[in-house]
Amino acid sequence: MPLGLIGKKIGMTSVFGADGRNLACTVIQAGPCVVTQVKSEDTDGYRAVQLAFGEAKEKNTPEAMKGHFKKAGTTPKRKVAEFKAMRAAAERTFELGQEVTASDFFAEGDFVDVIGTSKGKGFQGVVKRHGFGGVGQSTHGQHNRMRAPGSVGASSFPSRVFKGQRMAGRMGGKRVKVKNLRVMKVIPESHLIVVAGAIPGAINSFVRIEK
């Protein structure tokens, strides 16, 4: 079965590594998650476990989801995610309504992948969005070209702008996966894990942690 949990980004801190270096780290509340559905090859065609995390108000929960959570014997949750079975954990079994925590999956020294939604930056120009250097210096009468994109295509041929040209546009707000982050600490009583490095998303945003 899957090796992963739903979590919430708490913030950042720093931890001294084994070599004495001070490492920037991210604190994640990993669980506790509740098993709200167990899928099998017989009924669904594949093996997976659906987990739910974070308390939600009952008045904001659709009736269909209320029944779904009631069947699992739990209260309404804010975030639901499905984790497909992995060969490394094929022998693990989960029951409906079971609670899983960070200490069930993660230990110090493990490497995890974290998936989240990056911060939305709105409509941005090419310098911020793609790292362009601008057209040039402010000499020769150029007073308003410092952050301009410059030429985007030739005139007579091809007489158009190629698809995929790096230009201004919406930046951020996308699904981002950061791989191979080392787990520096696991705090079971608070359901917290500390991973080295930064993860996508704002504080209190939901993330998906996979091992």
Rank of each mutant, 00 (worst) to 15 (best):
F106Q: 03
C25E: 12
A196I: 11
G31C: 03
Q37V: 00
A196L: 09
I10N: 07
I187V: 15
T139G: 08
A102L: 06
T43Q: 15
S205T: 13
K84S: 10
K84Q: 11
G120S: 14
K163S: 12
N144R: 15
N60L: 05
S138N: 14
G109Y: 13
A18K: 15
M171F: 11
I199G: 03
E63W: 08
I203L: 14
Y46F: 05
M146L: 14
I28W: 08
E58N: 07
E210R: 11
F16I: 15
S40D: 13
E58L: 11
L192S: 08
I28P: 01
G122R: 11
N22K: 15
N204K: 15
K57P: 10
M167F: 03
G150Y: 03
C25A: 15
V49T: 05
E41I: 14
S155M: 13
K8I: 10
V34I: 10
K119I: 06
L51V: 00
A72N: 03
I115E: 07
E108H: 08
G67A: 08
R166D: 06
M65Q: 14
V186S: 07
K39A: 00
K77C: 13
I199A: 00
V195N: 01
Q29S: 07
E55S: 09
Q137R: 12
V49D: 02
C33D: 01
H68Y: 15
N60I: 04
T36Q: 02
A85Q: 13
A88P: 05
I10H: 06
I28S: 04
F53N: 03
F105D: 02
R208I: 03
I6P: 01
I115A: 04
L23Y: 15
P149A: 01
Q165W: 01
P2A: 00
R21I: 13
K177F: 01
E82V: 02
F162M: 14
G201N: 09
A88Q: 13
R47Y: 09
H68V: 05
P76N: 05
V100H: 04
F162E: 14
A24I: 14
T93D: 13
F111K: 15
V194K: 04
F123R: 11
G109E: 09
R166L: 10
V114W: 01
I187R: 10
A198K: 15
Q29P: 03
G45E: 05
A48N: 04
P188A: 13
F83E: 01
A168N: 10
K179R: 11
G197V: 04
H68K: 12
L96S: 08
L192H: 15
M146S: 14
G125V: 04
Q124V: 08
A72K: 04
A85K: 08
A102P: 00
T36P: 02
R145M: 12
P62M: 05
G17S: 11
H68R: 12
T117D: 07
Q98F: 05
V15A: 01
G197A: 03
R21G: 11
C33H: 04
V176Q: 02
G169M: 10
G164Q: 06
P149Y: 00
